[in-house]
Design a protein around this nucleic acid. Structure first.
Lengths: 110, 110
DNA sequence: ACCATTCATCGGAAATTTCCGATAGAAATT
DNA sequence: AATTTCTATCGGAAATTTCCGATGAATGGT
């Protein structure tokens, strides 16, 4: 994963509205949620949330799909994995000792 | 890990200057680097970098330590692990199927 | 054809972030 | 004690982000 893309992903997730929306979408995999449902959950105006959503989509963390006159949004788990791998490689790059607590924690998580 | 702290960590890492500095510090574990060395690597003014560093420290991703008249900065690997666990739990929370590609990728990383 | 629904985009105000030079404080050196 | 070195903080300018209401485009229903 390129640094530029990692930065865009981190920035996309670093806002409460966007992190909440992303987590909500992960919990609703693989059906997804409509944009309107996400707007309601956000408590913000429709236009404001729409621009937040656009940032998540631009970072490829959320993938939209047309269904009738509404858009179904889905979380991109692969993009999340790529981001985590990017962060992990900061440690693992030649430093397996640093990575050990990382994998240990993740192993017991799943 | 609390959502508030996760957001602060994500925001701290979502700027190129700060992400670079953090990665540099990870690669220099466990000796760390002085603030001055980080300033030089950043190419920014001393004051500008100092405020970036303060954001990393506030997020507990970097831990400073006095040594003589300079400050040695060290990456906090535990904080990185906590952030990754936070992100992973978005998938793993009752959804082991989603987490599978995550752990698989990390296993082959380390 | 017309209207209602759903969502993206525009225009602009307010808040925040980013950057710098200048200043201040703390510690080593002379 | 005076000076140099190292880093944090202040003050302020420029850029970016965040938020909203209004408008526009596309689709489905009447």
């Amino acid at each position: 994963m390129q640094t530029t893309i990692a930065l865009e992903s981190l920035a996309a997730l670093s806002h409460p509205t966007r992190l909440n929306a992303f987590r909500l979408l992960v919990r609703h995999e693989p059906e997804g949620l409509s944009t309107g449902q996400l707007v309601d959950a956000s408590g913000l105006s429709q236009s404001t949330f729409s621009s937040h959503l656009a940032i998540l989509v631009a970072a490829d963390l959320v993938v939209p799909e047309k269904r009738g006159r509404q858009m179904i949004q889905r979380a991109n788990i692969e993009a999340l994995r790529d981001l985590m791998l990017f962060l992990a490689k900061d440690c693992c790059g030649g430093r397996a000792d640093l990575c050990e607590p990382l994998v240990a924690g993740l192993a017991e998580c799943c």
